[in-house]
Design a protein around this nucleic acid. Structure first.
Lengths: 268, 268
DNA sequence: CGTAAGATTGAGTCCGATCAAGGCGAGTGG
DNA sequence: CCACTCGCCTTGATCGGACTCAATCTTACG
């Protein structure tokens, strides 16, 4: 058992003991300044987030100072829906899956990449989380106490304005997702997702999956089996599957099939 | 042809001539003070909206003063998706359907009752509408210029805070709708919708549809035919259909089938 | 090299959509 | 007052898409 694995295991145990989490995390947070744990470029990336970019220097400093920077191994559940929103989360490194359940069914709601935040709405209204979150790979997460975020809201107008903008963005993204689900078939959702992921290129685009296909299938609202079939169905439309790598050889053909719209797939 | 109908018809023509709308509406707005056109209880209801309740008196007055109060006949398209967001809308009376399209498909996104607002997010970020809106019945609508809303955002902290809360609410409602769509079957969505509409009662609840069933079917993400079948499928679970009136005779049974959750069906 | 987990493929079933026909009700005109 | 008509709702039959179950293949990793 390697030391690396030991560390991961220890982190993991913190999460299995909810009562002890806060002390454990807090002690880590207080013993080592956030800035010391973070690579400078990561700190700069957080500062450059739309949510923080226009905030006053002292607002930002206070939020980060009060936050806990923590590393997690893959597969760790960070939050559970129906729990009160204690922290605003910032993904500094790695991948986080937001998912939701109802009865015994579960679906992936979104994938958060660095540098992105999640569950801002629950934090602001001091409500329970509507979604759960788990790490998909080794991740570095900044957790900012909800109380601090709400405080900053009252003291820094520029930050408040950024929160409004970010909330409105999230709102609109969610509306688009409803449209995506209600107006499209599975194969169309997949085609549009691929086009959105693809690095723009004149000739051909390549999409490299950073997570399992079963996660993608759930994100798109279908079963893993169906995703396989949907991918096959896209072959006649210029798509080539090479394991976790997907080539879009004929972008025009895929666009014709996908029929994307900025009112559904738009970046914001 | 009655005078009443004439007036409706004239209103309608304004909407068919987009270039002339603004002048027409503006002239109405300036010739008659809003307060004169509105019943006092309606004005009070608007003031009592979560969005306006905590706003300063002068902020509210300015927003309403700059707004246009307009009556519309049923079936009038108020806004079209992809158009720039020029107004924040408040439904004072009647019913408004928000819907969205993609290609030749269309789906109902939500129904707005008095007193409610719609498309706040687009207004705040100065973006295009993601949804279209049409009246389902004779309606009275207050249209507040987007510019005024954004101005108020910078001058009235209490209003800003209300906007944050309202946005977060809308965001969470949209997330819930995604969960509703991805995690439930059509019949389950129907059952939960009925329970949500039903006036709480110890014995039996009654739901009276205020709009066509085809609209409801679209709202729930199914075809009209399927809604009929889904309603029939709920009969063994204590539901009786009497045309546009639906009785829930056995609430316990329907609850057992619907399996509602505050994280999907909650009021906020 | 062996195991385990994920991905794919096939077969059967279910849910929902489409197409087509008939019933009901409101509004219209004779 | 009554037939007519036009939507809307319903019902049935058929079709297609998506899910389930099961088996096989691939891959990652010990």
């Amino acid at each position: 058992m390697s030391l690396d694995y030991m560390i991961q295991y220890l982190d993991f145990t913190y999460l299995l003991l909810p009562i002890d989490i806060y002390q454990a995390v807090a002690s880590i947070g207080s013993s080592a300044p956030i800035e010391a744990c973070m690579r400078p470029e990561d700190a700069a990336a957080i500062r450059d987030l739309l949510l923080f970019r226009d905030a006053r220097e002292d607002t930002f400093a206070e939020l980060v100072r009060a936050g806990f920077l923590q590393r997690f191994p893959p597969g760790v559940t960070l939050i559970n829906e129906s729990e009160p929103a204690d922290f605003l989360y910032v993904v500094v490194e790695g991948l986080v899956e937001l998912f939701a359940t109802s009865g015994d069914r579960e679906t992936t709601m979104s994938i958060v990449e660095p540098v992105g935040t999640f569950i801002l709405a629950a934090v602001l209204n001091d409500q329970v989380y509507l979604q759960s979150a788990r790490t998909l790979e080794k991740a570095q997460i900044l957790m900012i106490p909800a109380e601090k975020v709400r405080e900053a809201l009252g003291t820094d107008p520029a930050f408040t304005h950024a929160v409004v903008t970010e909330l409105a963005r999230g709102y609109r993204r969610a509306i688009k997702e409803v449209k995506n689900q209600k107006l499209r078939t599975g194969a169309e959702r997949l085609a549009n997702w691929l086009l959105r992921q693809a690095v723009p290129s004149d000739t051909e685009a390549r999409v490299r999956l950073r997570f399992e296909k079963r996660v993608l299938s759930s994100l798109l609202g279908m079963t893993p089996e169906n995703l396989s079939r949907a991918l096959s169905a896209l072959k006649p439309h210029g798509v080539v599957i090479l394991g976790p790598e997907i080539l879009i050889q004929d972008q025009a053909a895929l666009l014709r099939f996908a029929n994307p719209s900025p009112l559904v797939d738009g970046p914001e």
